[in-house]
Simulated scan of single mutants.
Amino acid sequence: MSLKECRAECLKSCSCIAYANSDIREGGSGCFMWFGYLIDIREFSEEKQQYIYIRMAAAELNNNKKTRLVLILVVSLVCGMLILGFLIFCLIKKRKMKRASDDNVKDIELPMFDLTTVTNATKNFSLTNMIGEGGFGIMYKGTLPTGQEVTVKRLSKNSGQGLQEFRGEVILIAKLQHRNLVRLLGCCVEGDERMLIYKYMPNKSLDHFIFDSNLNPKISDFGLARSFCVDQTESKTKRIVGTHGYMSPEYVVDGNFSVKSDVFSFGVLLLEMEWLLWKEGRALELVDDIC
């Protein structure tokens, strides 16, 4: 008798509670059935295994199916609620950031450029249009629909400079008028993007002209500028941002900054100039003729 036939025979009797092949060899045959109680159960080694098929009540099988179904429904519901909660959290956070950006720039009397205009002007921020890079982000050359050439300063999301530095730079440059300041034409604030649009300066950056006799610099970076009171000489900040190597030790370690911090940075610049001249054998050119 095959195993299938043995099963059919067991199901014919309500008292049959289990069945198995009587021949335990591979492909064995025969039928062995239990009635009432499971007795004469033998233990086999791993080399000689035999399967026994135990008959269970339909109610028990249905309960197991219901339990699995309920478990699946509960897990699916919890996962769905977590995903929905995360999406709502992201949406609320994005709206708060946009509202904060709008509140911080709405009081600044400065033209606002939309993101599409800036993107088209820089050819989608193409690498061929990149003209500089610093701790704040990347500078791009662009051309507005009017044909005017501009410089777009795009704040990097990983620069460490946030809305506070961006707003400070906009306020300071927008209110200051000086021949050595690059003219600020406007800004762009959309979503996570924060950009400043300057008048384009064709003569590149200061490092290209550091030894020219008719140097006429144009300053544009006020992102880290600090406002001091009349009798204030130093302060402390929790945000340490800037270009490493030019920041004073007390600012990097403890967050203390003052006019001495600018002196330190200027000193580093002088040392770089002196080192370049020293390697070229022209160190005395750094000294003023009056000396």
Score class of each variant (00 low, 15 high):
199 K>V: 13
199 K>R: 15
200 Y>P: 02
201 M>P: 01
201 M>K: 05
201 M>Q: 12
202 P>V: 00
202 P>C: 08
203 N>Y: 07
204 K>G: 02
204 K>D: 07
205 S>D: 08
205 S>M: 02
206 L>M: 05
208 H>K: 10
208 H>L: 09
209 F>A: 10
209 F>M: 05
209 F>G: 11
211 F>H: 04
214 N>Q: 15
216 N>V: 09
216 N>Q: 15
216 N>K: 15
218 K>F: 10
219 I>W: 07
219 I>D: 12
220 S>N: 09
220 S>F: 12
221 D>F: 10
221 D>R: 06
221 D>I: 01
222 F>E: 08
222 F>Q: 09
222 F>A: 03
222 F>T: 08
222 F>S: 06
223 G>I: 12
224 L>Y: 10
225 A>E: 15
225 A>D: 14
225 A>H: 11
226 R>C: 02
227 S>M: 14
229 C>W: 13
230 V>S: 13
231 D>W: 10
233 T>H: 14
236 K>M: 05
237 T>I: 13
237 T>C: 11
239 R>V: 13
239 R>I: 14
239 R>M: 14
240 I>Y: 06
241 V>W: 13
241 V>A: 10
241 V>F: 10
242 G>V: 04
243 T>Y: 12
243 T>W: 09
243 T>V: 01
244 H>K: 12
244 H>C: 02
245 G>R: 04
245 G>L: 04
245 G>A: 07
245 G>E: 01
246 Y>R: 01
246 Y>C: 01
246 Y>V: 03
246 Y>G: 00
247 M>E: 05
248 S>L: 08
248 S>E: 08
250 E>L: 08
251 Y>F: 14
253 V>W: 04
253 V>S: 13
254 D>M: 01
254 D>H: 15
254 D>C: 06
255 G>P: 08
255 G>S: 08
257 F>S: 02
257 F>H: 02
257 F>P: 00
259 V>K: 15
259 V>W: 10
260 K>M: 10
260 K>L: 12
260 K>P: 04
261 S>N: 03
262 D>M: 03
262 D>T: 06
262 D>L: 03
264 F>I: 01
265 S>H: 06
265 S>Y: 06
265 S>P: 04
267 G>I: 05
267 G>V: 02
268 V>P: 01
268 V>T: 00
269 L>P: 01
269 L>C: 03
269 L>G: 00
270 L>F: 04
270 L>S: 11
270 L>C: 14
271 L>V: 14
273 M>Q: 09
273 M>K: 02
273 M>E: 02
274 E>Y: 14
274 E>V: 13
275 W>M: 15
276 L>K: 05
276 L>V: 03
276 L>W: 00
278 W>R: 15
278 W>C: 11
279 K>M: 06
281 G>M: 00
